[in-house]
């Protein structure tokens, strides 16, 4: 069933996420990372950031929060059984550090149909506690017909 285009422009409440030190390590280990900048405080202290930082796609957690809300939005009523992630585009402005508080705004930027499939795209913009941009992202999902 086609997704109603009237939801283009729908916004979700700002999503606030505090980056946890152990969560960074947990995430890094789950993606098979070995980079000491994510995992080893002692080594990271001597590195460019003075402490561990999050791997780039850790943005899936703080920027992906409101995207999850969109996927489960009852009004939008996406068929989750047939939904897969189609495309992802991250633009990074600053690294995420333990203790950072991220605020992410999310809007549905596009809804379209092609070859019997529906495409839903969300755009997110995340800023940190200093008001500086951290990540801008486009998340495209495909609902297989």
């Amino acid at each position: 069933m086609a997704v109603d285009k009237k939801f283009i422009g729908k916004q979700y409440a700002p999503f606030v996420y505090e980056v946890g030190r152990e969560k960074i390590k947990e995430f890094a280990k789950a993606i098979g990372e070995t980079n000491p900048l994510y995992l080893d405080e002692e080594a990271a202290k001597k590195g460019p950031h003075g402490d561990i930082v999050a791997p780039p796609t850790f943005a899936s957690l703080y920027a992906g929060g409101p995207v999850g809300e969109m996927l489960y939005d009852k009004e939008l009523a996406l068929n989750l059984m047939m939904l897969v992630h189609g495309e992802q585009d991250f633009e990074f402005f600053e690294v995420a550090r333990a203790g950072d508080t991220m605020t992410t705004n999310c809007v549905i930027s596009d809804i379209s149909e092609k070859s019997g499939k529906s495409f839903v795209t969300a755009e997110t913009m995340t800023t940190n506690q200093n008001g500086r941009p951290v990540v801008k992202a486009r998340w495209t999902f495909v609902i297989r017909g």
């Binding site: 980079n35 900048l37 994510y38 590195g47 460019p48 950031h49 930082v53 999050a54 791997p55 780039p56 796609t57 897969v84 992630h85 189609g86 495309e87 992802q88 585009d89 991250f90 633009e91 990074f92 600053e94 690294v95």
Partner: peptide, 14 residues
């Protein structure tokens, strides 16, 4: 070089 701060953009199709 190993520093994630150098990554400016990351994009792909699944």
């Amino acid at each position: 070089g190993g520093d994630p701060a150098s990554l400016k953009r990351l994009k792909a199709r699944f």
